[in-house]
Design a protein around this nucleic acid. Structure first.
Lengths: 125, 125
DNA sequence: AGGCGATATGTTTATATTTGCATATAGAAA
DNA sequence: TTTCTATATGCAAATATAAACATATCGCCT
């Protein structure tokens, strides 16, 4: 969303971000990690998810581990070894979390729309 | 806002951030710079604003300059020299911008409240 | 003319964050 | 018991971001 055509703010956008944080003010997970977890859910593998998101396995693995440590519970159930090397599947908590996050985003987008419109009206008064 | 007492998410919070961005995806100004500009408005000086915010004058000055360059217009009218060394006062555009931003934050907070509540209900189901 | 204090800006040093490299391990199947 | 592939993790290299240092300029006032 940008300001009206011809205004000072025509090609300027209002963006937002939501994330989970702990009491120490540390970021636990934001959109990137949520997306990653969603990919794991869809692909059944951390490696496949990393590839799809265009990030290294090392990074993806570190992201998941970091989030889990800060949350204090597991999001992904990991299996290693076996014919295909291993696999990953979301825990019930992980599943609930991404479901809730998806709904949250939809509601956020709706709320943002009105707020943004008002903002650009005001700066262009 | 956190999850209900005793739940997995008791000491975990949902946070958000809003900022202005240009078409190149560059951040123009977010809460830190908005606050700085607000301080300049209140104190009439970039130096005083920097001191109040606990950042160096160099950094504060760079922040303002960067935002102005990306916006394409001035936020602050700067004067140098004179008995007191100089002063800074917001331009009408700068003033409008921080006013609009303050209102935006209030509305955002309200919207967030409901959304957050729903989110934590869902993950704790 | 000289002092004072805030604006103006280049350069450099430190710190934090991210990315990438290398390597180890598990475990089903051939 | 060898092979294959994803999970697991330490560590080094590369960037990005921020902080610090060093000067220069401007213009009212004495």
């Amino acid at each position: 969303m940008a300001g009206p055509k011809g205004s000072k703010y025509y090609d300027i956008f209002l963006k937002f971000k939501v994330w989970l944080e702990n009491t120490d003010g540390e970021s636990i997970l934001g959109d990137g990690k949520f997306e990653l977890i969603d990919c794991i859910d869809q692909l059944g593998s951390l490696k496949a998810a990393a590839d799809k998101m265009g990030i290294s396995y090392r990074k993806a693995w570190g992201n998941v581990k970091d989030a889990e440590e800060k949350l204090g519970f597991l999001l992904v159930e990991k299996h290693r070894g076996g014919q295909h090397g291993g696999s990953s599947v979301l825990t019930p908590e992980g599943k609930k979390l991404i479901e809730a996050y998806k709904e949250l985003l939809v509601e956020f987008d709706e709320a943002i729309y009105q707020i943004t419109k008002k903002f650009f009206n005001k700066v262009n008064e």
